[in-house]
Simulated scan of single mutants.
Amino acid sequence: MTCRGVLFDLDGVLLDSNAAVQRAWSLWAREVDVDVDQVLALAHGRRTADTIRLVAPQLDANAEAVRIERREAGTTQGLRRCAGASALLSALPASAWAVVTSGSRALATARLRATGLPLPRALIAAEDVGDGKPHPACYLAGAAALGLAAHDCLVVEDAPAGVQAAKAAGMRVIAVTTTHARADLVAADLILSGVSRLRAATTMAPEGSWTLTGLRVR
């Protein structure tokens, strides 16, 4: 698939944080007496505060989000890189990719460092936009951070809310089935098992720099 830039969701795409996410949300759900299964079904791909507003509108969502994300950032137990993530990022020109996450900047940075993945030049986090996924604002901000038009960007996502956000932004989407079933991701343009199926296609510009031309499926 041709593109000039790639926008990666973080959790479930580049790193596996399922254990940490389930642990933090399950503990919080028990503390505030809300249904754990409902929380976990909604949490993937959404900002923490947005999930809280859906399941516990009576609470101060921003305050609760800070509490949950501090707990998540305080542990690296169970975090690991998704297969193929490090190799794919290493093959991409640094100016041609960004991370667009529903987590906070502090949480995203902590997880990238804990798993040994490179910090992107452009990182769009929860606090950078007024509306979270499935609203397209985050992906439009990611394209702007790379200096690209939306139609020049390719998004890699694992959650329905993220796929919806990317499509609403006018971008093509590759979905990976790391956290959701294929049936939940049918709005994507392509569905794969993970980023290990992808490789970068680049070309050398006249001045000697490498330019991204797309992603190919292995």
Rank of each mutant, 00 (worst) to 15 (best):
G12P: 03
R121I: 08
K133H: 09
L88R: 02
R81E: 15
L42P: 03
A19D: 12
T177E: 14
A43G: 01
E157M: 01
L59M: 14
V34A: 06
A181G: 15
A65S: 15
A85T: 10
C82I: 15
R172Y: 00
T115G: 03
W97D: 00
A73F: 01
A49R: 15
R199Q: 14
A43S: 15
G142M: 00
R182C: 12
I191Y: 04
L88H: 03
T211Q: 15
R218F: 10
D189Y: 04
S196C: 11
E127S: 09
A114D: 10
R172S: 04
W25D: 08
L42E: 14
R46P: 06
H44N: 08
R70M: 12
V217W: 02
P118D: 07
L7E: 00
L148F: 01
V6Y: 00
S209K: 07
L88N: 04
M204W: 08
I68D: 09
A19T: 13
V36F: 02
P120F: 07
V129G: 08
R71T: 13
S26K: 02
G84E: 10
A126T: 09
G162N: 02
P93G: 10
I68F: 06
I68Y: 06
C153S: 08
L54M: 14
R67C: 12
A165E: 04
H135T: 03
T2M: 07
